[in-house]
Nucleic acid binder design. Structure first.
Lengths: 123, 123
DNA sequence: AGATCATTCAACCATATGGTTGACAATTAG
DNA sequence: CTAATTGTCAACCATATGGTTGAATGATCT
């Protein structure tokens, strides 16, 4: 129905599905940070954090630019928009349905063994 | 800072990171569906769809109840709330920062080779 | 140039995803 | 009881994640 930029939704949601990466994003909300700065709070190798950042970069959530020998990372929030728009749309859409749906189901449960066959309602 | 129910965020985002599963959720927005009904539009085995539904169930996005020999699936939208709240919170938080941040960066880029060292602003 | 710092790359390992097929379980129909 | 329908389970395969360590690259300092 509504056509969202569904393109990078896979990568975006996958990127958000890891607590380390979400923490990195939270840190980046305070401003640019180098890879080392981002890595500090975590009990893992720099290489591991570097890979997380690469994944975030592939998902267009973060970008890097070199400043001397330091890679500064910064947020690129456009992909977030696509993700939140997708969820919000369906959340609202579902919310509309739920009042009716729940009433219907409550009814169904009560008479579930009296009426073995039920027509499929379609919109 | 703000304490969200970060518990199942991993599972929720991971569940949303697959186009088949997002399509299943969209279909379920129209009402309950059996596993077979959900599987129909997809060019994959029933077992594959069944596994997607199991993953959605583990993420608390979907629940099942048996009705005869048919498993009816329905949406359980609470997990969506946690996900959308997480993104929305940081989206708003970041939005605040970006005006200032972008102005700052634009400035930085222009004078980047005149001023090799820069103090780290910390909130 | 040589040493050092910041970061990535490469190889490796364990586990999870996303799919397949075939057997099995549960339920209903004849 | 037997057969068909609905769905899951088990085993398998290929690829991706999430982590490690050690070597390699790039930039800066002396």
């Amino acid at each position: 129905m509504v056509e969202y930029n569904t393109e990078n939704l896979d990568a975006t949601f996958a990127a958000l599905a890891d607590p380390t990466r979400r923490a990195i994003l939270e840190k980046l909300a305070e401003g640019e940070q180098s890879v080392s700065e981002l890595a500090m709070p975590f009990d893992m190798s720099l290489a591991a954090v570097s890979k997380h950042i690469q994944l975030l970069t592939r998902a267009n959530l973060v970008s890097q630019h070199k400043k001397g020998r330091v890679r500064q990372c910064r947020l690129e929030p456009e992909a977030f928009e696509a993700a939140v728009n997708w969820i919000e749309h369906y959340r609202d859409f579902w919310a509309e349905k739920f009042t009716a749906l729940e009433a219907f189901l409550e009814n169904e449960v009560k008479k579930s063994d009296m009426k073995p066959k039920q027509g499929k309602r379609k919109k």
